[in-house]
Design a binder for these strands. Structure first.
Lengths: 98, 98
DNA sequence: GTCATAATTAGATAGATTGCTAAGTATCTA
DNA sequence: TAGATACTTAGCAATCTATCTAATTATGAC
């Protein structure tokens, strides 16, 4: 996970609506419309959130007919978990910061 | 970790400067001044970042004389790691979303 | 082709965020 | 108490973000 991607991921996770989208997508695939139903937000606003989540590589999108199905991309979550874990690891005694 | 705290934590993590502060604090305690030296940002701006990190419970602050020492509060990182892990866990078959 | 449906893109706006300088507070030294 | 140092708070400007409505694109049914 390079710095740019890192940044997009944390920016994506900063919004509660987007975190809820991720939780809802846990273990299943839903259409944009099915996801939108669960929020009190317009379809274009939801579409905007889907875009940011896609840019951050947190979700996949596939079209089937008129619908677009969204699902989690768990590989990037692993990267974020790693970032978090690194904050726990013991520093090198002579380790340089950045 | 309640929803409000959750929100403050993810907002705090959304900024690359604040993430770098956390990385630098990994395993040691530094003064506001020592931290500020490592950035090309004014002291007041850094102070603002310290504030957000404190509100999110991601760092501790203690004064010793003229200096204020900052250090990581690792317990909240654990909470975030848990949030991330939950996104991997298998949903209940009849589980309701939210 | 025409109409309906699902979703997106375009454009606007209110509010949040990040950065700055100036001013204030807390502490130490003399 | 006066001056210096470390840091924060106050107030402001530029930029970014989340949301909306209106318009557009893509697909399917007739």
């Amino acid at each position: 996970m390079n710095t740019v991607t890192n940044d997009l991921v944390f920016k994506a996770l900063a919004d509660p609506t987007r975190r809820k989208i991720l939780r809802i997508l846990n273990g299943r695939e839903l259409t944009a419309g099915q996801l939108t139903e669960q929020f009190h937000i317009s379809a274009p606003s939801m579409s905007h959130h889907f875009n940011l989540l896609k840019q951050a590589d947190l979700i996949f999108a596939r079209r089937d007919g008129q619908q677009i199905y969204y699902s989690l991309n768990t590989t990037v979550f692993q990267d974020v978990a790693t970032f978090m874990m690194d904050l726990f690891t013991v520093r090198e005694v002579d380790g340089d910061t950045e």
